[in-house]
Design a binder for these strands. Structure first.
Length: 373
RNA sequence: GUGACCAUAGUGUAGCCUGGUAGCAUUGAAGCCUGUGGAGCUUUAGGGGCGGGUUCAAAUCCCGCUGGCCACC
């Protein structure tokens, strides 16, 4: 369920309504593959005003097992997080040789990176896993080729398979859901593929929209494609899909790309970008990127971001945080993760507010200027 | 005092026996990171204590000095 509340240009303010509650869009989800944002707790998430996270159905199926999570009452009860939760299908893992063995029209053969055991996952099976886990929003099992070392005809083949599987996901999901009460239903999003080829991408989205999903994701991007092409795919998808459905740009989490995508009608984002960058010393600030590991900050008494009012900026100096990161102290990773996610939460908040106030373009200009070059 | 061992990049080390481009880790510098395998990748900078000998050629073999370390007295 989605309600479009307001628009400013193509930027949208909306509400995503799930069985665990309603959250305002646009929003960003930190990645919690194994039911935990790395170095972060659900208490921290609540404190910074985070409203949604995404975990990974395939990884959870391997450990601790979807049936185990079902016994524990589903994700929501198990981790006691106040926000809503998405699960990714595991399609993204096809990008990783550590997981993928082969795919066929029937499904995908994965190996467990934990113990090497093999698992054949069909679209139907994937839906069952995600329903056992009982996330608020499930994702279709898609086929994600690495478009850097793959020819166009292989991307076309991925689109074909993705559509085929989307159909089977939807049918099986409907069947499983039919037994549930209306206020207890899991949402299901389709995922488009097609790399950065407009014709393939358009074909993919068009086919998906016929299946009537609760939302539509742009998949397969955030892999080093030119920013222009990424933006083009968002524009294209927004144009083809229904306006009263949310557009989820998967895997994108840099401030500039988020605001560019919002300006083209994207509503939902997720990425490891802010958390991974934090751990590696790249900090988001009101003055642009801060490279914390530079020696120039060895004695730096300033906070990470002088204009930030997060607990970390109010408490610690760059010098101390730099030292902790250099020492690879777990606590240091946590502190910088806190700031980067806090920064992104505030950005999303400002985006929503600016759509309300009709000042989105001004905000976009400010963010682009901040991260110029 | 006597004897043994050691001395290589900021730091920690490999090579030495069987002379011939000095390798690795970390640190420094720059960049990358986007539906996360618990912290990665790429590029780059920086070196054989001092003096002498042997040799076409010495981090490598020999002598002395200096410094360290251990044992004994």
């Amino acid at each position: 369920m989605f309600k479009l509340v307001k628009k400013n240009g193509k930027a949208r303010l909306g509400q995503l309504i799930t069985k665990s509650g309603t959250v305002e869009t646009p929003f960003f989800m930190p990645v919690a593959t194994k039911l935990s944002v790395k170095q972060f707790s659900t208490l921290d998430l609540k404190e910074i005003g985070n409203t949604a996270i995404i975990s990974n159905a395939f990884v959870l199926y391997l450990r601790p097992g979807d049936k185990m999570i079902k016994k524990l009452g589903g994700i929501k009860k198990m981790i006691n997080y106040s926000g809503i939760n998405f699960t990714d299908s595991g399609g993204f893992q096809m990008y990783s040789k550590a997981f993928l063995i082969s795919t066929s029209d029937e499904g995908v053969l994965f190996k467990s990176p934990f113990d090497g055991t093999r698992h054949f996952v069909t679209p139907e099976k994937d839906m069952e896993i995600q329903l056992n886990i009982n996330s608020d929003v499930a994702m279709c099992l898609d086929v994600m080729p690495n478009f850097h070392d793959v020819k166009k005809d292989e991307i076309e083949e991925a689109v074909r398979k993705t559509t085929l599987w989307a159909k089977r996901c939807k049918q099986h999901h409907d069947k499983l859901q039919s037994k549930l009460k209306p206020n207890n239903k899991q949402l299901l999003f389709g995922i488009s593929q097609g790399g950065i080829h407009p014709d393939l991408r358009k074909k993919s989205i068009t086919q998906l929209t016929k299946l009537d999903f609760d939302g539509y994701s742009v998949g397969g991007l955030g892999m080093g494609e030119p920013k222009k092409d990424q933006a083009k795919m968002v524009t294209l998808q927004r144009k083809v899909m229904p306006e009263d459905k949310p557009l989820y740009l998967m895997g994108i989490g840099s401030p500039v790309e988020i605001i560019e995508a919002v300006s083209r009608g994207a509503d939902i984002f997720d990425s490891r970008f802010p958390t991974q960058n934090a751990r590696r010393g790249t900090i988001f600030t009101s003055e642009g990127l801060l490279r914390l590991k530079r020696k120039a900050h060895e004695l730096d008494q300033l906070p990470l971001d002088p204009n930030c009012d997060c607990l970390i900026c109010k408490t610690y100096t760059r010098a101390y945080l730099r030292y902790l990161i250099m020492q690879k102290e777990g606590n240091g990773y946590r502190l910088v993760t806190y700031h980067n996610l806090y920064y992104l939460m505030r950005l999303m908040e400002r985006i929503r507010q600016s759509v309300k106030d009709k000042t989105f373009s001004k905000l976009k200009k400010e963010i682009l200027k901040t991260y110029k070059e």
